[in-house]
Design a protein around this nucleic acid. Structure first.
Lengths: 288, 288
DNA sequence: GCCAATATGAAATATTAATTCCAATCTATA
DNA sequence: TATAGATTGGAATTAATATTTCATATTGGC
């Protein structure tokens, strides 16, 4: 009868999230030791993935047989099959984001519902973040920070898709009490605004293909006044690159025709906070 | 003497990167089959981590004994210890983001340079994304999409830290040709702008603690006119929640006092594109 | 407080997987 | 081309690991 119970039960969880949900669901009704190993499993999924039944049981403070009973109670036929789920989780997490993205795109296209769209954007953001994490050049980063830290006023320049990043930078600089000017004017006074910039100031310019003409034009103008420029853009052929003292190439994954801006955001936040940091250091050095 | 070779050799690689370097270094001098398994190992590290000696050997097209010889040639005493390195790699890659974040914070604080700040923001963004991916409620998501898809005009309402998200939503809605109004006015005409909204419209309101008073006030006002509201906020106690037909709780990790906005961005983009999608579907249905 | 059902511990057993060994086959060199 | 040395394949052996079993303990219902 016990055996029947296992086979009659709704089918076993095939992926980690389902498994997790199942465990949390039954948590209250599990016997003490089984509950103990259940808690351990959710807290230390990596241990389950790699350990042996004996080692896991020891870490969790139960007998190996309990571990097997736990697996069976969930509908698996033994510890080994339970372990597969924990291993699969690591594989998937680790599987190239590109593959995942492709899968999600396919899913979204065949009309798998709106959740797929959401998953797609999350995946695109994750991909972009891991890309930039690999690609960021430390030397360039330091150079940009140094350049911005000694500026009297930091001008922030971006339109359209990049504008949210600019507005965030302006917000963060403001919170850090760093003088800055977001170049946007409902009254059409951008040119005049730029006219005030001097070589003692600095610019953060952000633009991605297709480059907003206004951003290019304003960057050119401000560069001609001798104001040093830090650019965030998407290729070395970008028109921004030619004007910039330092530039960053950020490649953002796209989904549904909309590119992520997570990597750009992360870079922008890091730049901003690092500049604040560097200024504090410089301040301490002058005083102390 | 062969045994001596193993013990006399420079100590065995303990981490994956060292191992990888060692393999690439010796690649040229390895015998054919050993080279074959070496290439396989670098190409399919996950398989090495999870497979058995027999299964890996089969996939790589060699004998299990060759696999063991490969391990021994690298200084390991057998396949098992080689495998540990491949497993460790997965564990580390996968180690809880929270732990990584804590480590990065400590690093940044002890002045480990600006790269640590950047890494911190990337980690914060990744954490937030994986959190929201787990936490998003499909039903709420669908509800919000339905609500926004049938709106005549979508009003977008957010200030300060959340403003970049609002400006991105407005940009994306514009590109999708969905009528929208970003509630911001240099001329201080927000109240009047809101006054035009009707129950046939809808609102996306975004605010996080400390909630910008203007956002709350405007949301209240527009709610009183019977306009349905979708809120993105950070807790069920948020003042936005009480006005909203649907609300999303998004928890963003912070670093250096600045919270990520990646999760909010991803949600916002998904909402926007899904609304566009839904409208297209509805359009087709009416026509077809 | 007793009984039946359930849960647990510990050791025995069965299974699976790693390792070793040896014969066969290559490879380089004289 | 003959030969020593290295390399490889495949089966035999050994080690490890999962699972089962059974005796004992615990729990919940009456």
């Amino acid at each position: 009868m016990g055996a029947d119970g296992a086979t009659m039960d709704k089918r076993v969880p095939r992926d980690f999230e389902t498994l997790r949900a199942t465990i949390l669901d039954r948590r209250a009704s599990l016997p003490k030791r089984i509950a103990q190993i259940a808690a351990y499993a959710l807290d230390n999924p990596d241990d389950i993935a790699f350990g042996t039944a004996a080692s896991i049981a020891a870490s969790a403070g139960v007998q190996p047989s309990t571990l097997i009973r736990f697996a069976q109670q969930l509908g698996f036929d033994g510890f080994t099959s339970l372990q597969q789920v924990f291993r699969e989780r690591l594989r998937e997490r680790n599987s190239s984001y590109d593959e995942r993205l492709a899968a999600l795109r396919a899913k979204a296209e065949e009309g798998a519902g709106h959740r797929a769209i959401f998953d797609g954007f999350v995946a695109a953001a994750s991909t972009s973040l891991s890309d930039i994490s690999r690609a960021l050049n430390d030397a360039h980063f330091e150079e940009a920070i140094a350049l911005l830290a000694k500026a009297e006023t930091i001008y922030v320049l971006a339109k359209r898709r990049s504008y949210p990043v600019a507005s965030y930078i302006a917000y963060a600089l403001g919170k850090l009490k760093i003088r800055n000017q977001l170049v946007e004017s409902a009254a059409g006074l951008n040119a005049e605004m730029i006219g005030f910039a001097t070589p003692r100031d600095a610019v953060i310019a952000i633009s991605f293909s297709p480059y907003a003409p206004a951003t290019i034009e304003e960057t050119r103008a401000i560069a001609e006044q001798g104001v040093p420029i830090v650019a965030i853009t998407d290729s070395s052929f970008s028109p921004l690159a030619q004007f910039a003292k330092v530039w960053f190439e950020v490649s953002e994954a796209d989904f549904g025709g909309f590119r992520s801006i997570s990597a750009t955001m992360a870079l922008a936040m890091a730049l901003t906070v690092a500049v604040g940091e560097k200024r504090r250091e410089a301040g301490r050095r002058r005083k102390g």
